[in-house]
């Protein structure tokens, strides 16, 4: 495993843990989109079905379980915790995230590495991950509030995407059979969406004003 991949995994892990820790500590999830968090939970649940069938390494298995556990915990906090759920911006978090799921599923049925249940689910999770940030973007646009979504969370997600792209480039040039078009393209789309987000985040930070995304 190369350093880019490892750093990508770590920043991804920290982004989820920072969010979970924050919610746990301050008992508030203001500014966080439950829709996006639910999509991430679905992403992990459908991608890691191979926990039961393939063993790759102890590292992979443990990381998968931690990603699953932490993302499900965030959803649990936001839905069920007495105090946390009160701080949830329900009226603002209106993105119809269910409408993302069906197109991703259809796309996965059409474009996959192999037409098996596991591969279709794997492709579905990649497509869904690429667009899962959208409800969060809409919520930010509505509330125009970046105070509650810490810079750390944004920074870590961006670092995760960047390191994974470096990892793919590195692996492409150092390994013989390493070609994963589906992963790469959906990863690029995801990074572009984040890039859009960063642009406005840093722009507003620089001008010391509240975040304002174009309609």
């Amino acid at each position: 495993m190369n350093m880019f991949r490892f750093l990508g995994d770590m920043t991804h892990l920290f982004s989820v843990l920072v969010l979970l820790l924050k919610i746990h500590t301050i008992k508030s999830c203001a500014g966080i989109s439950l829709k996006t968090q639910e999509l991430y939970a679905i992403v992990f649940a459908t991608r890691y079905l191979d926990l039961f069938t393939d063993y790759i390494s102890l590292y992979n298995t443990v990381m998968k379980l931690v990603y699953l556990g932490s993302s499900l915990s965030i959803v649990w906090y936001m839905r069920r915790h007495k105090l946390v759920r009160r701080s949830y911006d329900k009226d603002q978090d209106t993105f119809r995230h269910h409408f993302l799921i069906l197109p991703c599923l259809i796309l996965a049925l059409l474009i996959n590495e192999k037409f098996t249940f596991m591969e279709v689910m794997w492709a579905f999770s990649l497509y869904l991950e690429a667009v899962a940030i959208l409800p969060q973007l809409v919520l930010l646009q509505r509330t125009r509030n970046i105070d509650n979504l810490t810079g750390q969370y944004v920074f870590l997600l961006g670092a995760y995407r960047s390191f994974y792209i470096l990892n793919w480039i590195y692996r492409y040039f150092t390994e013989v059979h390493y070609v994963h078009w589906i992963t790469w393209i959906s990863g690029l789309v995801q990074t572009l969406l984040y890039g859009d987000f960063f642009y406005y985040y840093f722009h507003s930070w620089k001008n010391n004003e509240k975040l304002q995304l174009p309609a």
Binding site: D9, D50, D54, I56, N60, Y67
Partner: peptide, 10 residues
């Protein structure tokens, strides 16, 4: 399983 075709990334 065929290692080359396995998804070894997260």
């Amino acid at each position: 399983p065929n290692v080359e075709n396995m998804h070894d990334e997260l």
